[in-house]
Simulated scan of single mutants.
Amino acid sequence: MIVVTGATGTVGGAVARLLTEAGEKVTAVSRRITAADAPDGAMAMRADLADADSLRPALEGAGAVFLVPAGDLLGGAGSPDDLVAAIEAAGVRRVVLLSSQASETRPEAISHARLREFEAVLRASRLNWTILRPGGFASNTYAHVASVRADRTVAAPFGDVGLPLVDPDDVAEVAAAALRDGRHGGRTYVLTGPAAVTPREQTAAIGAAIGVELGFTELTREQAMGRLSQVMPVPVADGTLDIMGAPTAGELAISPHVEEVLGRAPRSFAAWAERNAAAFGTMAG
Results as ranks from 00 to 15, higher is better:
Arg183Val: 11
Gly185His: 12
Gly186Glu: 11
Gly186Ser: 10
Gly186Cys: 08
Gly186Phe: 12
Arg187Ala: 12
Arg187Leu: 10
Thr188His: 08
Thr188Val: 14
Thr188Phe: 06
Thr188Ser: 14
Tyr189Ser: 07
Tyr189Cys: 06
Val190Ala: 12
Val190Tyr: 13
Val190Glu: 13
Leu191Trp: 04
Leu191Gly: 06
Leu191Ala: 08
Leu191His: 06
Thr192Asn: 11
Gly193Glu: 06
Gly193Lys: 08
Pro194Lys: 09
Pro194Ile: 06
Pro194Thr: 06
Ala195Arg: 07
Ala195Thr: 02
Ala195Asn: 05
Ala196Cys: 05
Pro199Val: 00
Pro199Arg: 00
Pro199Gln: 02
Arg200Met: 00
Arg200Val: 00
Arg200Ala: 00
Glu201Met: 03
Glu201Phe: 01
Glu201Trp: 01
Gln202Cys: 05
Ala205Phe: 06
Ile206Asp: 05
Ile206Tyr: 08
Ile206Glu: 04
Gly207Val: 08
Ala208Lys: 13
Ala208Asp: 14
Ala208Trp: 07
Ala209Asn: 06
Ala209Cys: 09
Ile210Thr: 10
Ile210Gln: 03
Ile210Cys: 02
Gly211Pro: 03
Val212Trp: 13
Val212Arg: 15
Glu213Gln: 14
Leu214Ile: 04
Gly215Phe: 09
Phe216Trp: 03
Phe216Ala: 02
Phe216Asn: 05
Thr217Ile: 09
Thr217Arg: 15
Glu218Asn: 05
Glu218Cys: 01
Glu218Tyr: 05
Leu219Gln: 12
Thr220Pro: 01
Arg221Val: 03
Glu222Lys: 10
Glu222Arg: 11
Gln223Phe: 09
Gln223Gly: 06
Met225Trp: 14
Met225Leu: 15
Met225Pro: 02
Gly226Trp: 14
Arg227Pro: 00
Arg227Ile: 14
Arg227Asp: 10
Arg227Val: 13
Leu228Lys: 03
Leu228His: 08
Leu228Thr: 03
Leu228Cys: 02
Ser229Ala: 15
Ser229Glu: 15
Gln230Val: 02
Gln230Asn: 09
Val231Tyr: 12
Met232His: 01
Pro233Tyr: 13
Val234Ala: 15
Val234Phe: 15
Val234Thr: 14
Val234Cys: 07
Val234His: 15
Pro235Phe: 15
Pro235Ser: 13
